[in-house]
Every structure is written in structure tokens, then in C-alpha cells.
Nucleic acid binder design. Structure first.
Lengths: 145, 145
DNA sequence: ACTCGATTTGACAACCATTCTCATCTTGCT
DNA sequence: AGCAAGATGAGAATGGTTGTCAAATCGAGT
């Protein structure tokens, strides 16, 4: 079961609502907004560049802080690339995983009752509680082959 | 299907065979050997400490280099902790995943045809090739609950 | 055993993503 | 407007990891 191409297309209307329960400041809104201009994973630094390039003046530290807020509140997904950097992307609400293209970064959100069930079962079987898991699938997408 | 507690117990006899195709130097053997004194994931720095504490004089850079060699040749597993650090552990040959205890680090190797099959299917379904994936399950083990 | 070239090592500098500091600016509220 | 809590930004500080390069080591051939 996969959600057929929920490609998470960019949304258009800029947001004006509070961000992660904090104050809806210019900067936070700016960050929240760039996040909706792309559908794949970007590093904090890239996001910062996007902002400054588009004229928004937001400090790097603030970008990191905001991204963390958003991540904590579940508004964005975080994944660690193979070299340990964190990459962010706004995400839909449900729990899911990602199929990421190694060369272009194109991402497809995938969902799998199968895995969820499996991890829970495995964990329980070994007496582990409070289960959480991370699963990323890497490959080369059709366009990049 | 899980391999029932393949806890990867420490092995006893020190190794003297080549390491990852390179020269079997004192340092490399030393690293390869500490790796077999524990069964859970340790950071490169921890491994370095273990070495120096036990009297072995191996440079930190060398530990990193060796660990990378071993990882490339598939002799050790690498996983990224949630804060982006790399953790290493010698591994059995087969492809598998880990169930890691959040508080004590106890690790259980798990294996799952289910997931393997699932990821392959998903990927193919979206036209991705050369699939690889990472899956880590985190939880609190029985002893730590 | 001895030599020589290729590898490897180690001490330390360099990197780089991320976090911290803290003085200054904003926001929300009255 | 006025204030206190919260947020920002510039830059310093951290900390894991990688790069540098001269000196040490390995091992194949003699």
C-alpha cells in the first residue's frame, strides 16, 4: 500500500497562522512558507539560502530554531542523509516513510501498514516498549537512470 | 521472522588476518579486535577511548579511517544516531536491521523478508532502481523499562 | 637479513553543520 | 503607550569527522 504519488506539491497561499504554537513572527512565517515552495528534502542551510536569495532576511540560527520547532510539532519531516546532515521537508500529517532519489533528491512519500505492523511485532517480541522507527529507502529514480 | 537473540556476543580469539583488503597493521587489528569485545553500537570516539584505555596507542584519525574501511568492505555496520553521529558495530554477513534500546543501547539484530520485499516492491512501483534502505527501530528494552 | 617503494600512521589543523550566547528588537497584552 | 516574555541575529563556540604531510612501517624482492 502506497499513496499513489502524493508528491506533496507546493502550495500557493502564504501562511499567516501561528507556527508550532509559538509566535507567528515574520521569520517563522517565512520559513514555513519556503517549506511549501518545494516538495523534496532540503538541508537547513539550503533553506536559509532560499530565504536570503528571495530577499527575506532571516538569520541562520533562526532557521535552525524554527525548523526544529516545526519538526517537534510534527509539521515537517526530518531525515538524516547518509553523511549525517539533517534534511527537512513539510509533511503530511500521517506517519510515513520516504523513497528518495540518490542523485536528484526527488522524494515520494510512502506509507506501509506492513512495516508498521512488522516493527511493532518485532519489538514486542523482544520486550521493547515505546517503539519508534526510521526507514528511508534510497534508489535512483526513473528520470535519473 | 527474527533471528532469536543473535546477540552478537563478543568473540574471544584476537584476529590476525588482513583487514578489509589492506595491510593488517597493529592498529587495524587493534580496531578490528575491540569491535569484537562488544555487541552494541559505539561511536568512533568511544572506540578510540576503549583502545587507548586498554593501552593500545592508535590515533583517532586512524580509528576513523579503519572504521570506514571496515564499513566499506561490509565488515561492520554503521548507523546514524538521531543526532547525526555515526555508530559502529561488527556485523554478521547478512542484511539486517537493528532494534536499539534508547537508554542502554542494547541492540538486537533483526531480519525481515517482509520489509525487504516491501521496500523492493514500493521502489519498483515508483520506477526507482538500485534500491537500498535503512531501517532502525528504537525502543526501551525490558531491562530499562 | 637488508633495501626500497608504497602504505599507513599520528599529531594537529581544517571543515562544516549545528548550537550557544547575549545584547537588542518584537510581540501580545493591558 | 509601556512592559515582560519571547524571538532574533551576529558571531563565537562545539564537536564530530576529514584533510595534511612528514615520519614510521610493511612486505616483496634480493
Amino acid at each position: 500500500m502506497t499513496n499513489t504519488e502524493p508528491k506533496t506539491e507546493p502550495t500557493t497561499e502564504p501562511r499567516t497562522t501561528p507556527v508550532a504554537g509559538g509566535r507567528p513572527t515574520k521569520q517563522r512565517l517565512a520559513v514555513a512558507n519556503v517549506l511549501s515552495t518545494f516538495g523534496d528534502f532540503r538541508s537547513a542551510q539550503e533553506i536559509h539560502s532560499l530565504l536570503t536569495d528571495s530577499g527575506e532576511k532571516v538569520g541562520l540560527a533562526t532557521v535552525y530554531r524554527t525548523l526544529q520547532l516545526l519538526a517537534d510539532s510534527g509539521e515537517v519531516d526530518v531525515l538524516r542523509t547518509e553523511d549525517g546532515e539533517a534534511a527537512y521537508r513539510r509533511c503530511s500529517d500521517s506517519h510515513h516513510h520516504h523513497l528518495v532519489c540518490r542523485s536528484c533528491g526527488a522524494t515520494v512519500e510512502v506509507e506501509g501498514p506492513t512495516v508498521e505492523r512488522w516493527t511493532k511485532a518485532i519489538a514486542a517480541e523482544h520486550g521493547y516498549r515505546d517503539i519508534s522507527h526510521t526507514l528511508e529507502i534510497f534508489g535512483t529514480c526513473a528520470a535519473c537512470s
